[in-house]
Every structure is written in C-alpha cells, then in structure tokens.
Write a protein that binds this DNA or RNA. Structure first.
Length: 442
RNA sequence: GUGGCCGUAGCUCAGUCAGGCAGAGCACCUGGUUGUGGUCCAGGAUGUCGCGGGUUCAAAUCCCGUCGGCCACCCCA
C-alpha cells in the first residue's frame, strides 16, 4: 500500500504546542477582560445558509466565501467573520436576550483569499459586541475594552486608530458624490501605498470626481496631527452637512469618553484615514496597530454597524464591536519573543527511577495533583541523566527524584531545575515543600 | 484570482548559474560517571533534495506540470 502524503491545504495550518499554548493564553486573557465589562459567551455554527452570509460584508467577502451544496442540496457557506452570524443570532433570539445584549465569541472563520504572512484561509477571531444601543458610551466602552485587552496582554506599544464614517459620508453628501462612496473609500484606503497623486488620479478615473471634488476629499484624507489639532481642523474640511456635523460630534464625544476612562493620549489616535473595507460599518470604525510589529497590520479592529440586523428582522438592532485577530496577534508575539517554545510543561517532573515501584510513583503523582499541582511522571525507567535532560528541555520547575534509598528512608529529593539545588524532604511533607518551592520561584 | 521569488536533515541554510558519490551549523542519540540536566570531550544516526513527469550515459541541479510558502496587486484579523 502506498503512503499518503501528509499535508494541509493552502492557508490551513497545524498548531504545535508552543503556538497553541500562546493562543490559549491570549484567549484566556481576552475572555477575562471581556467578562470584566459584562460581556457573556455565545457560539454559533461554522456553517450557515449562504443567503444569511452573502451580501453582508460586500462583494469582496462574497468572492472569498467558501460556499457549496451540502448533502441535502442546501446552499451553504462557511462564516467569513463572527459579526454577520451575530446579527442573525440577535435577530433570531432578540426577545430572549434583552437589550442591550453584550456577547463575546471566539472561533475560526474562513476566507478563500490568497495567503501571505499572517494571512490564512482559516483563522481565529475573538469578537466582543454590544447590540441594541446607539449610545456613544458603547463606542467609548468598545475602545476601552481594546485598550485594556492589549494592556493585559503585556503589549505596551500599541495604538488604537479610530474614525467616524460620517465624516467622509457627510463630505461626499456635500459634494454630491454619495453614490460613489464605496469606490472612494477603497481609493482612500490605498493612500499609504500609492500616495496623494495616485489617489487623486484614481478618484478621477474610478469615482468620476472632478479636480475640485478630489482636492476636497484629499484634504480630509491627508489630515494629520495630534488628536486636538485634527479635531480643530476638521469642521472646515468636512463641510456643513448634518451628517458631517454628526460625525464630528460623535468623534469628539468618543475621544472625550475614552480620555475620561483613563486611556493615555498616546494609545488612542483620531485617524481620519481609517476607512475599513467591510460594507456594513456605519459610524465609529477603528483598527489597532502594534508599533513594534508594523508589518503585521491591524490586530484588532471593528466599528459600529447600525443596520446589520435589519437584514433579518424589522426590529432595530444597532450594534458595535471589535474583533481580535488571534492568529495575527500570536504571530506578532512570537516575533516579539514573547512566546517561549517549551510549550506547556507541568510544574513538577517525577523521575521514574525504580521500575518495580511504578505504582508508588503513580500514587505519589496523584497525591501531588490532588493538591492542585501539575505533575508529569516519566513513562520509562531510563537513565536518570536522560530523564533530567528531558525535564530540563521541557521546562519543568522542580524534579522529584526518589531512588531505592529514598524509598527506604521515606524521603524524596526535590531539585529546583533553574538553580540545580536539591533538598531531601520527608515524603509526608513533599506536597507542602513543593508548593513552597514553586511559590518561591514564581 | 494575477504576477515575481522560493521549496535540500527536526531547525537555519550551502550546493542549482556551469548536470558527475547529498553537505554545514544548531538540535538529536550513545559513551566519558553504580543515582542527577544546562558546560566540555569522543563517537553516532538522520534525507521519497515538496510531489509527478520529461531530457540525459548521468538530474537536488535543465524543461513541463502540480502542491505548498513568501512578496506585490486586491483585500483584510
């Protein structure tokens, strides 16, 4: 029989222990932060009816969607984000949930796009959203959650860039270009790449903007400075439509709220160039960048979507939320050397020294575990040196060594691997002494 | 999806231009010590050269296809 080549699909990956342990830690931290703000867990199916997902994220999302007929001939698709399923979920369960409804949701999503560093076809998002309120306090809270999340993760160098789509919408209304909003948005998004002149010519060709219109749009996109400088300059640039005024007011109000929440000025930036491609965003939009890993792009982004649930219900269910890119974040942390590659080792290593006494070692390990300690018993009675080497490589804190002599004396040697120091303790005190040693080294 | 570069030991890579015995460093295994890791010394094992086909006396090397990775476009976590 021939051997089948072991392999994974393009854009799909296996996760080794070191990476997976890092991911679990990120998820645990995010969960703790989300819960601290009153978000509750939910889950939804990976597979949905295509009609639920199609047309919600824009043409690009539709193109990238994994879509096929299931065994019953149903037209189905894998979710490409967690926000659209949430909208369906909220519409379906609104009556039971109560408003506002705050939920978090972690799971894989799928996009059939071309791969690149930090971009895969299957990746994990960890979302949090607030459904059922238009209050800007929810916008403020969303940004504060992101801030606390990155602070808790130990990533000190990050900046949350935020904007309000009404600024551009208002400007375009005044210019009579509302119809071309999508195409203009896409052109503006390329500003860092193709420059002012590139965007200017693209605005003319793709959106049919006149030279004057293009200049007005570019004046907005090119606006830079401190948060207060940008806010001061904006009114003259975005014009005097009611939409633009609303966008201005929202932007100022959100920034004020974020400041009041104690977020440092250098962590939050009004950035009118943040547009976000997904079609469903309506007001506040944001992206989060790691200053030390610029190449990886945004690791947490989101915004307000006041019309999304209207696709599934007549009830008005506005929402706002954010999406943490778990894989991207773990990749960034690996680049920053924040992930040690030993994987998750148990605190205590027990050498299997005397093969005949396997039962004694097993009950000893069980006793330590019942006290809440994590214990690994080596499965083979190999040379002690080899076992010690294994324990060292694996990253255990303590090694418990009990040979025939110790068994007879009813004692154990407990070795602190980092220092090499070893103490002999009575078996009766082993649990307590191990706890103390672990406490001391942490 | 389109285009460019790349794929050789567990890892990082040399060897490919100009076809001629498949290599280095690190990691790994064994020994130097009857029962103690990280250093040192000695020795050892390890490859469908991504996969399939073609050209050739001979292919890691040249050609075609395919799968995968990276980069750009596009878009995005």
């Amino acid at each position: 029989m021939s051997i089948i080549q072991p392999r994974t699909l393009k854009g799909f990956r296996d996760y080794l222990p070191a990476t997976m342990a890092a991911r679990e830690e990120v998820v645990a931290t995010a969960r703790r932060v989300y819960r601290g703000f009153g978000f509750a867990p939910i889950d939804t199916p990976a597979l949905e009816y295509s009609e639920i997902l199609l047309g919600k994220g824009g043409d690009e999302s539709d193109r990238q969607m994994y879509r096929f007929k299931d065994h019953g001939g149903r037209d189905v698709a894998l979710r490409f984000d967690l926000t659209v399923p949430l909208a369906r979920f909220a519409a379906q369960h609104a009556a039971r949930l109560g408003i506002p409804f705050k939920r978090y949701h972690v799971g894989p999503v799928w996009r059939g796009e071309n791969t690149q560093r930090g971009r895969y076809r299957e990746f994990v998002q960890f979302d949090f959203d607030t459904i059922g309120t238009e209050s800007l306090l929810a916008d403020v809270e969303t940004l504060v959650v992101v801030h606390d999340l990155f602070a808790e993760l130990g990533l000190s160098e990050f900046v949350i860039h935020f904007n309000n789509r009404d600024l551009l919408n208002g400007l375009l209304e005044g210019l009579g270009l509302s119809e071309q909003a999508d195409s203009i948005l896409r052109s503006l998004d390329k500003l860092p790449k193709i420059g002012i002149d590139g965007v200017r010519s693209e605005l003319a060709t793709a959106a049919g903007a006149s030279p004057d219109q293009a200049e007005a749009i570019l004046a907005l996109a090119g606006l830079q400075g401190s948060n207060d400088e940008v806010l001061t300059a904006l009114p003259a640039i975005v014009g005097d439509t009611s939409t633009a005024r609303a966008g201005m007011a929202a932007l100022e109000s959100v920034l004020e709220g974020v400041r009041a929440s104690g977020v440092a000025e250098e962590r939050i930036r009004v950035d009118v160039s943040i547009a976000r491609g997904l079609a469903y965003y309506t007001g506040t939009v944001f992206e989060t960048f790691l200053t030390d890993v610029p190449g990886i792009g945004s690791v947490c982004s989101g915004g307000r979507y006041d019309d999304l649930a209207s696709l599934y219900t007549k009830q008005r269910l506005p929402g706002i939320g954010g999406s943490l890119g778990v894989d991207r974040l773990v990749a960034a942390m690996e680049e920053l050397g924040m992930v040690d590659d030993s994987g998750a080792a148990a605190d205590i290593f027990v050498a299997l020294f005397v093969a005949d006494r396997a039962g004694d070692y097993l009950s000893l390990a069980a006793e330590l575990r019942s006290a809440g300690l994590s214990v690994e018993l080596y499965p083979d009675a190999r040379k002690l040196g080899a076992q010690m080497k294994y324990a060292d490589r694996r990253g255990h804190q303590l090694a418990v060594i009990i040979g025939e002599d110790e068994w007879e004396r009813r004692t154990a040697q407990v070795k602190t691997l980092a220092t090499g120091r070893s103490v002999e303790v009575p078996l009766a005190e082993l649990t307590q002494r191990c706890s103390e040693l672990l406490e001391a080294s942490s």
